[in-house]
């Protein structure tokens, strides 16, 4: 394991940015581990959430933005609920995920593809078109057999329509996306 120069490698600007965007103080964390203890996704994480918090405190930007955990977090907010210091840990995970996306880090490509496809679908149809989402996601990732066994169960229940839902205010939803893009520029 490499030796970390905790002075030179600490990115204070990064810490400030995380704190600003999440409106949380990462200094409040005293590393009790309650977030990790309750997190239902620790089994797939490469870095447990309490260590994510520690790495934020230490300003280890590179390690954090390139980790898988921030993409696998389901935002169930168990960590936020349990934190004795009332830190919104899930929000910090969310901020890190956004930062990673902005800076071009994608440790879990399929998760990003899913989110992109999902939002594209919402933009186009006003709400998600499940069959279209499925087809695009499968095409982008090549995961043809994922959840295939669920098809026969949900098709007869009418849960998976072959046509997009016709909803009112589709154009209004598209406006939201437009405004967001304008804001970003």
């Amino acid at each position: 394991m490499e030796v970390v120069d905790i002075h030179a490698s600490c990115d204070h600007e990064f810490i400030a940015k995380v704190e600003e965007e999440s409106e949380q103080k990462v200094r409040l964390c005293y590393q009790c581990g309650n977030c990790t203890a309750g997190c239902p996704y620790t089994f797939v994480y490469d870095i447990p959430v309490s260590q994510v918090m520690r790495l934020v405190q230490a300003g280890q930007k590179e390690r954090l933005l390139s980790c898988k955990s921030i993409w696998l977090c389901a935002t169930c907010e168990s960590c936020t609920t349990r934190c004795p210091n009332e830190i919104d840990v899930a929000r910090i995970m969310d901020v890190l995920r956004h930062m990673a996306r902005r800076e071009g880090y994608v440790a879990e490509k399929n998760v990003k593809k899913f989110w992109d496809t999902f939002l594209d679908s919402v933009e186009k149809h006003g709400r998600v078109f499940e069959m279209g989402l499925l087809a695009t996601y499968v095409a982008k990732t090549g995961r043809f057999w994922t959840d295939m066994e669920l098809g026969p169960k949900i098709l007869p229940k009418g849960k998976l329509s072959f046509k997009p839902h016709e909803i009112q205010g589709k154009d209004k939803v598209a406006e939201i996306f437009k405004r967001f893009r304008e804001m970003q520029q």
């Binding site: 009790c32 990790t36 203890a37 447990p48 309490s50 004795p84």
Partner: peptide
């Protein structure tokens, strides 16, 4: 580490927590 939950399992209690040193 801290304990996040305790729930009964048979006549035992399942204690779920974290070992932050092991991660």
């Amino acid at each position: 580490g801290r304990v996040s939950m305790i729930y009964p399992q048979g006549d035992k209690l399942m204690v779920r927590g974290a070992d932050t040193l092991m991660g």
